[in-house]
């Protein structure tokens, strides 16, 4: 990027070269808020509209954020990969994945970036279960995620504290190696398999997850976890 400004962040990261991939499907109210938050923190958001019924373009200030639209709905995994490919073309230094429903905190990104640089890792994965993070989950959801943790371990070989967290930070080089082929939610496990396969250095860092009534209503239900499990199985059977 032809930026002349370098923001005074501790490690002299140009925050405009931090690209935030925000996959969105039929979001509107929360998306607007999320994009504004990201812009306020100086990042470059890439909103990937995954074939929403109505284009989400009016909710994205296209003067300062990128907007990509899938003509048909493909799934969150596909949207993420599109955003990552686009960010790589735009020569992003760091690529962040961020959910559009407003459950993440944009302030966490900087902390995760610091962790990435300090520990010299390739990927930092947000975790809502680590010390220092806040979450407001019901007991049922918590138990489900505990179970998902071991399913993930079984399929990917990485045992993490939080299995399905949408907040991740990766370097340009790491993002280049990750090629998501799972279109739907099973991409979360696929990312882990690819981290393992490509021997990327990863670390977990605490990240806040605050569900609103809106995100609860939009988010994954217990039943959708069966679909994810089935997709993971299919992925293993048909390589």
């Amino acid at each position: 990027m032809g930026s002349t400004f370098i923001l005074f962040m501790p490690n002299l990261i140009n925050s405009r070269s931090v690209f935030i991939v925000v996959p969105a499907y039929n979001e509107s109210t929360s998306l607007q808020l999320v994009v504004h938050q990201l812009l306020a923190n100086g990042y470059t958001p890439i909103v990937v509209d995954d074939g929403s019924a109505k284009s989400l373009k009016p909710f994205v200030p296209t003067a300062s954020a990128f907007f990509i639209r899938h003509k048909v709905n493909l799934g969150q995994g596909a949207a993420l990969q599109t955003g990552i490919s686009f960010a790589l073309e735009k020569n992003a230094a760091y690529i962040v994945t961020f959910d559009a429903d407003g459950q993440h905190d944009a302030k966490n990104i900087n902390e995760l970036l610091q962790t990435l640089i300090e520990t010299n890792s390739d990927v930092v994965l947000g975790s809502r279960f680590m010390k220092g993070s806040v979450h407001n989950m019901t007991g049922k959801r918590k138990r489900l995620l505990k179970l998902a943790r071991y399913i993930n371990y079984f399929f990917s070989g990485l045992l993490l504290t939080d299995a399905h967290n949408g907040l991740r930070v990766m370097t340009h080089a790491a993002a280049k190696k990750i090629q998501l082929r799972e279109n739907r939610m099973a991409h979360a496990t696929e990312i882990l398999s690819q981290i393992k396969k490509n021997k990327l250095k990863y670390i977990e860092a605490p990240a806040t997850v605050l569900y609103t009534d809106y995100s609860r209503q939009k988010g994954q239900t217990v039943w959708s976890s069966f679909r994810i499990f089935f997709d993971i199985l299919l992925n293993k059977v048909f390589k």
Binding site: S3, N14, R16, S64, F66, R69, T82
Partner: peptide
């Protein structure tokens, strides 16, 4: 197709420092 479309529009995006 989506990326191509976004590329052609992204000329509008002004790459300012802040």
């Amino acid at each position: 197709q989506a990326i191509k479309e976004a590329q052609s529009q992204s000329t509008e995006v002004k790459e300012e420092g802040k």
